[in-house]
Nucleic acid binder design. Structure first.
Lengths: 210, 210
DNA sequence: TAAATACTGTAACTATTGTTACTAACAAAA
DNA sequence: TTTTGTTAGTAACAATAGTTACAGTATTTA
């Protein structure tokens, strides 16, 4: 774990802090599609992402989902920070988008380090800043774009975090992530295909215009 | 200013910090409709709200607006925090919704206090948490509600921060805040009136079903 | 007072998104 | 192989939101 830490967080944290994280953190390898955080759940530890990607989702009153953004390597979940420090329940769901390696840090330490390490404080504040920006971008996407643009942006983002121009997903899954219906997605995907931006196959989509 | 500070922030900050804020902060009274922060602008000081309300807006590529939320007494603008600490430009616009009293704190001090005062650190993190929640609520509203519900929520929120069941606003202004067209708003307002939820007058709307 | 401007109401039409229903292709399980 | 379930394509229609156009009323300005 120490190697991973140094490689991904060494440029940011001093050795002493890296050492502390190494002592109290637990290294985990999680497969794709695993639910890391559920809405309403209290958070006991915070994930530091080493590799892979996590999908952050919001839920409406009927239990239908909406994707907010993806988190990638070097990030942490600011929502988690928020919940820990406010001692409140999670307002979002977090699901691994790909196979993921992460280091779990207990909440108690997190607070302690805030006073002890300036770099940790910087990291926490920077994470808040990043997540705030991502939320604003999510709002832009939802409020300002029509569904066809939103869909194409979603496909490109998904291709990005999966490091592949072919994404394995069904129309129904896309519809869930974008909080619309399968028929709408199928229709728009077909249009994108006709426009030569994607190639449709069963269970997967190839993005041509990346 | 000291009186105002003690009254609104005394329960939260220790005397020493209150004293420091009193020393370096500037007290300001701002009329309704004043632009406090503009998109793309660097922030040099942070507002602590004493009384009144501030409207936070996002802008699309065509320059059209969208309201995110209102900030009230006891709050600060977490976006400002975010910008200061990240040394980045503002991603939002802030306009006084009512006549407003606030205390401006220079950025430099803000960072210094983070290490010096635990309560300040708590305040900053709490502000991030609150703003994150508000952004999530904004997303819920935009993504999950149809325009008629959004409109009614907007009217109620506006009545709330103005402490009045009569709000003085034109259909065009509402349309701008909700990022839609005047005709749509007029149409939906008429429906709300027929349903007995509001009373329409020239330049003002009375909310009956608060 | 007359003219110009701002605000609201409404009709008619278009565009976008959501819903229901049905078909066909494919894949996994019995 | 047959059955069952999953996935995708498409038509037809409904609901919601956006646009254009115009009229009437109130308010401000010349």
């Amino acid at each position: 774990m120490l190697e991973e830490l140094k490689q991904h967080y060494g440029y940011m944290f001093e050795d002493e802090l890296i050492q502390e994280i190494n002592n109290v953190g637990t290294y985990k390898e999680i497969p794709e599609g695993f639910k890391l955080i559920e809405i309403g759940q209290y958070i006991k530890s915070m994930p530091l992402l080493v590799s892979g990607a996590i999908k952050i989702l919001r839920e409406d009153k009927d239990g239908d989902e909406l994707i907010l953004y993806f988190i990638e390597q070097g990030d942490t979940c600011a929502m988690t920070l928020s919940c820990c420090l406010g001692n409140s329940k999670s307002e979002i769901r977090a699901v691994t988008e790909t196979d993921t390696k992460l280091i779990m840090v207990p909440v108690a330490k997190m607070e302690e380090w805030l006073s002890k390490y300036k770099t940790w404080q910087q990291f926490v504040l920077q994470s808040y800043h990043n997540r705030m920006s991502e939320l604003l971008e999510a709002i832009d996407t939802i409020a300002f774009l029509k569904m066809d643009k939103r869909l194409f942006k979603y496909l490109k983002d998904k291709a990005m975090v999966n490091h592949s121009d072919v994404i394995y997903v069904t129309h129904q899954q896309i519809a869930s992530d974008l909080h619309t219906s399968r028929v709408v997605i199928s229709r728009l995907l077909k249009t994108l295909e006709i426009d030569g931006k994607i190639e449709l196959n069963r269970n997967n989509i190839k993005i041509l215009d990346l």
